[in-house]
Design a protein around this nucleic acid. Sequence first.
DNA 1: AAGTCGGGGCT
DNA 2: AGCCCAGACTT
Length: 355
Amino acid sequence: MRTGLVIDRLLGWYRTRDRHVPWRGETDPYCVWVGEVMAQQTRIGTVAPYYQRFLERFPTLPALAEAHLDEVLKAWQGMGYYGRARRLHLAAREVMAKYGGDVPEDPAELLALPGIGPYTAGAIASLAFGRAEPAIDGNVRRVFSRLFDLELPDRSRLEAAARELLASGRGDAASVNQALMDLGSDVCRPRNPACEACPLGSFCLARARGTVESRPPPRARRPLPHQNVGVGIVRRGELVLIARRPESGLLGGLWEFPGGKVETGESPADAVRRELMEEIGIEIEVGDLIERIDHAYSHLRVTLHFHAAIYVAGETQARAASEARWVDPKTLGDYAFPAASLSIVSRLSQQRAAG
DNA sequence: AAGTCGGGGCT
DNA sequence: AGCCCAGACTT
């Protein structure tokens, strides 16, 4: 295959396109970094509004490094994979301490920062610094799998292909990498690929062999286990109880209404009462079911049973939770909550003070 | 190599 | 009702 010809077709196609990635053409490494971390396993269309708001809130790397994690999580609320926000924040502080606030240009140094893996290191190095580094995301993986008809696209093979294109001497690394990703997302799609409109169609081995739909092979998935969770909307006068989840694990660092898994033989109301005693150390009286929410996470599905409850006795002493707090419902909007709780949060914060 | 980690948009 | 997304990290 003639690498130069492939690149010419690819870049020719790319130049005719309108930008749809907010940080396209951006060379501030901090901005590229923020965008690329947000885009990990998240569609560009979803990321775009978060990206704008995040940079208004934290315009520079020092601004992010000086912020409190809770502010960063609040800006991240709704985007999922909250560990990304925690690691981005951590890495910003590390860049301040180690590099005086200058994002390193060397891929190996980027790779050593929390939350930056092979893809993101290559993306920052190429987009912000113009280095000829591969940035192999799911799109590029799919494009190469089909272009070379690879049954098992391993990393080293993909990286070699990318480096060959980058070394062709045509086009800048940023354009080459972004063109490959654009092609994967808009033409060489997972399903219903637009092969007839593909600038690389005449070079595509999978197309010639009729194996396009089976490249790359679909990943095996196990059925998601289901879990019932009892949640307490615990009132004490005009206040409501919230708790902060541990920083590691699911929804790490986010605030939630306290509760927990419904054990076998237990009702959701029983679970709320038990969990409030075990986790927060208070006695409550559990009332009516307010709302039931079905929600799917990456590896499990849950049904949240939100119950009204009234404080009875005891002092809050967060055990499983890292912190518990009685707050005015009108201030709930200041805290980062999981998406599954937002309907309740919205309802409570708009409610006039309840007695 | 497999499991963990969100949420939503599209088919 | 699945499938997958400009992946990284842990075990």
